[in-house]
């Protein structure tokens, strides 16, 4: 995925930057980019090129007085990132270059960047053991449910078959057993959406409040979707009651019922949109 977009001006100053992943070494990276931009002024490059930078890949290009840089994962296909970087350059040069030269705000350029750069959304599915996280994953993927319950070990990562808001959705189904709790904070890192699954029993919902606190602590910008699963059982609390206890918007689900699939995908779509809106504000 693209982790960051940077546009530098004639004085090698950062005119625009947007990051899609946290970095501990941002200051060092910016210093490097400024030096790179300075260096690029002394060489001729005709198209977008790239270099490896630790576990990432840096794509750079020059157009007029501007230097354009995209930071992406090495796992990404270089030609795709080159193409996206070129698209961004074209849009910037056409509609925003003059504004940038005049020192004016770049208005809705951020939205255009999002449309092009956000190609992957991480959705973490969190909850205690046996609440139906893996069943929810199967539901989202439209898969037949396994007949035997096979507890997840660590994490299971799968893609949603279709794109949502032009992005690939990567689902991280985290094991719910206590022995895997040490992984939760690591595994939800950088998630844009967290689906918090409960089995709608009072005991489980009360315990799950801890998970809400964990999510707020580790990924404060993530959109949290509470799930009141197993609504087909007579003892289930209502989604409203579950939401009151958890303190997050909560929706009913019967994960073994395929008819809930579209509703769940809609919830993810809405969460992604809300995430973008709150990013802007």
């Amino acid at each position: 995925m693209i982790r960051g977009i940077y546009i530098l001006g004639e004085q090698n100053n950062i005119l625009y930057s947007k990051e899609y992943a946290k970095s501990d070494a941002r200051a060092t990276l910016i210093e490097f980019l400024v030096n790179l931009s300075q260096f690029l002024k002394s060489v001729d490059i005709e198209k977008t090129e790239y270099m490896n930078l630790s576990v990432s890949r840096l794509f750079y290009s020059k157009r007029g007085n501007f230097t354009f840089i995209s930071l992406a994962d090495k796992a990404d296909e270089p030609s795709q990132i080159e193409e996206k970087t070129d698209q961004l350059i074209d849009i910037f040069m056409k509609d925003y270059a003059n504004l940038a030269l005049a020192g004016q705000p770049l208005d809705d350029f951020g939205d255009k960047v999002d449309e092009i750069a956000v190609t992957m959304v991480k959705v973490a599915i969190l909850g205690f053991a046996g609440v139906g996280k893996t069943t929810t994953l199967h539901l989202l993927r439209g898969e037949t449910l396994p007949l035997v319950h096979d507890p997840t070990i660590g994490v299971s990562i799968k893609k949603l078959p279709e794109e949502v808001q032009s992005a690939n959705i990567v689902l991280w189904d985290l094991a719910g057993q206590a022995r895997f709790s040490i992984l939760w904070s690591k595994m939800i890192a950088n998630a844009q959406v967290v689906i918090l699954v409960t089995d709608s029993t009072l005991e489980n919902v009360l315990r799950s409040k801890k998970l809400v606190a964990l999510v707020k602590e580790e990924v404060p910008n993530a959109q949290v979707i509470g799930i009141a699963n197993k609504q087909d059982l007579p003892t289930a609390l209502t989604p409203e009651r579950v939401g009151q206890i958890l303190g997050v918007p909560t929706y009913e689900l019967v994960a073994i019922d395929i008819s809930y699939r579209d509703r769940l995908v809609q919830l993810i779509r809405r969460a992604i949109l809300e995430g973008k809106t709150s990013d802007k504000s």
Binding site: V55, D73, A75, K122, I157, V170, K186, N190
Partner: peptide, 10 residues
């Protein structure tokens, strides 16, 4: 093995 926060285990 590298645990990438977006791609998982690589």
């Amino acid at each position: 093995i590298h645990l990438d926060e977006n791609h998982g285990f690589i």
